[in-house]
Amino acid sequence: MAGPRTAPHSPSPGPGTDPATVSDAVSDAENAPATGPGTADADSKNAIGSTGPTAPVSGGPGAPDGTAGGLTASRGAAGGQAVLRWGIRAASLPAAAGLWQVLTAADARLWLRFDRLPTLGEIAERFGAQLTTSLYYLDLLQSLIRILTGFGLAAVAGIATGILVARSRRAGDVLLPLLEAVRPIPAIALVPIAILLFPTDEQGIVFITFTAAFFPVTVSTRHAVRALPTIWEEAVRTLGGTRRHVLWNVVLPGILPGVFGGLSVGMGVAWICVISAEMISGEFGVGYRTWHAYTVVDYPGVIVGMITIGVLGWLTSAAIELIGRRATGWLPRAEGSRR
């Protein structure tokens, strides 16, 4: 038979997108591999299916033509609201910084003792100075190497362990009691053990980081495996697939959405632990440098360290978020937010 006969009769795949539009959008996207996320391709047809509010031609998501005008009007009002909200959001951080500046410049002592804290100017000056030293980058690199090593190992081991305990009853019987016994111990409480166990501080810190990230990844993987619909596994098995095929073609891709949740949490606690461990036993690293600044009464240096840690944490979390979105592009998403 010729041509997709279902197209005119069957329900469209999603609100506001008839199959033909989807077809155009997808093939266009595929024909333009250079187009990354966020780079709008002005003349391409794919603008119609995906941009929603800025493309009135499309008639809005699923809206019959008659109501399109009304929707546009209400969008105008909503637009004003949105501008206001963005204004408030943009002002919130400078306002807090301004408050800090007022309190520290005035050496305020309102039970909380702001007179000991540096002003914005002092912090900026210190930050500028630090950015020109190679030590700053050495610390940064050291912390990044530690976290990426510990977190990377935890991701691999956590996913493997999570799958193992969820898919094999025997492995679950052996490992689950162990995991449940160790899990409640905060990784940072393992610092003495790490110092005793490992020949160098470096390995100890990586070990702490690993332990911190390992459990969230394992637990989320285990739950993701158990939440997999059985129909996918059955489909692969009735097509001749073995357990190995099920693992590679169903389990691993199917658990990714859940696993990335665990990786995000794991990255967060990994940072907490790497910084704490560096403060206790490091010789380099952002955490060590921040604590060191405190002990030599370099308070602007402490704030510079804090900001650095915050930026690093945000960057690594954003990286995971981005990779996660890429890897789970097949998930249904809200209208207008295509991968």
């Binding site: 038979m1 006969r5 069957s10 989807v22 077809s23 093939s27 097949w330």
Partner: peptide, 18 residues
């Protein structure tokens, strides 16, 4: 099965019949 041109679509982009 009449789906020429849809080979690169994901299942969620298709209707139930497709």
């Amino acid at each position: 099965v009449g789906l020429a041109g849809f080979a690169r679509h994901l299942p969620r982009e298709l209707s139930g019949g497709m």
